[in-house]
Amino acid sequence: MKNKQYLASLLLFFVIIFSSKAAQVDTVLVFSASMKKNIKTCVILPDSYKKSDKKFPVVYLLHGYSGNYASWAKDFKELKKQVDLYNFIVIGVDGNYSSWYFDSPIDPSFKYETYVTSELVSYIDKNYKTISTRDGRAISGLSMGGHGALYLSIKHQDIFGAAGSMSGGVDFRPFPDNWDIKKRLGSINEFPENWNKNTVVNMLDLLPNNSLKLIIDCGVDDFFMKVNRDLHDKMLDKKINHDYIERPGEHNLAYWENALKFQLLFFSNFFNEKAKI
């Protein structure tokens, strides 16, 4: 009987010890001067954050259409463990449900490129112990957010040193009536220049010197598979270095949970090389 009680007590001790190590999840309000509103943001800090005086690299994660800032912490069950494993800060960005993460040329109330690259990054660097250079920042996202991560990193290589896309809508022109894109750009027939200028596949000329570390990932049964393959082929033609992954999977959470593991490892390797964490 005493042995059983001892074993039970020992088991409880280890449960308490190991469960006490957990990333901290906070929700903060970040004011956007460009859009004149507060925007909720999820900040996930590794368990080591409070115990260390060092500065931490940051990964910004962009949700897909109809998602929000809390999607990553709520839906990705392993994310907090991964934050502790790699010892970087993760930011769950809110891009409205359908911003596509650019500054809308037809709707001045949607300035999410300005918000993410200027206002949000500045807030995070001011309020947290971050490595506030491109060598300490990465950005990724899924679906709409995959497009956004590549779009923002390509346009702002002074801010982000690495970027990824999971099932990204990297060329949305084949989908002119979907996901409120025409609310942000106007109709493709009336404003074709808006669509051509703001789709990732047409932005590769901004990557002449392989200055970004890039990882692109899409499931073979995803409706965005073709546009991702087309982007990959175009990058090969232009000799743009990137990691490219296709694996069985659809446009769903099960695929993204697996893909995120590869992306975070990719970013950890980048930070280890560049930021010397």
Rank of each mutant, 00 (worst) to 15 (best):
I124R: 00
A162N: 06
D135M: 07
G92T: 11
Q157W: 13
P105F: 11
I159M: 10
G141L: 02
G136L: 01
S104K: 11
T114Y: 11
D125I: 00
G164D: 13
Y151A: 10
K111Q: 14
F88A: 04
Y112K: 09
E113D: 13
K155Y: 13
V121I: 07
S109L: 14
Y115R: 05
S118D: 15
K129D: 02
H156Y: 07
Y112H: 11
D135A: 09
G92Q: 09
S122Q: 10
I106G: 10
G164Y: 09
I124M: 00
G146S: 07
G161S: 12
E113I: 10
V93P: 07
I139L: 04
F88M: 07
H156C: 10
G161E: 09
I131G: 00
G161N: 07
I159L: 06
S122K: 08
E119M: 07
D135V: 10
S104F: 09
I91L: 07
V121Y: 00
Y128C: 00
D94T: 12
S153W: 04
W100M: 12
G145N: 01
F102T: 13
S132I: 02
Q157I: 08
W100C: 09
I131P: 00
S143C: 03
G146W: 05
Y112W: 13
A149L: 08
G164W: 08
S140V: 10
F88L: 05
A163I: 14
D103S: 11
S140F: 03
V90I: 12
S122F: 08
K155W: 13
I91D: 06
V121W: 00
S99L: 09
S98Y: 14
G145A: 05
T133C: 07
G164L: 12
K155A: 14
G141K: 01
G141I: 04
F110Q: 15
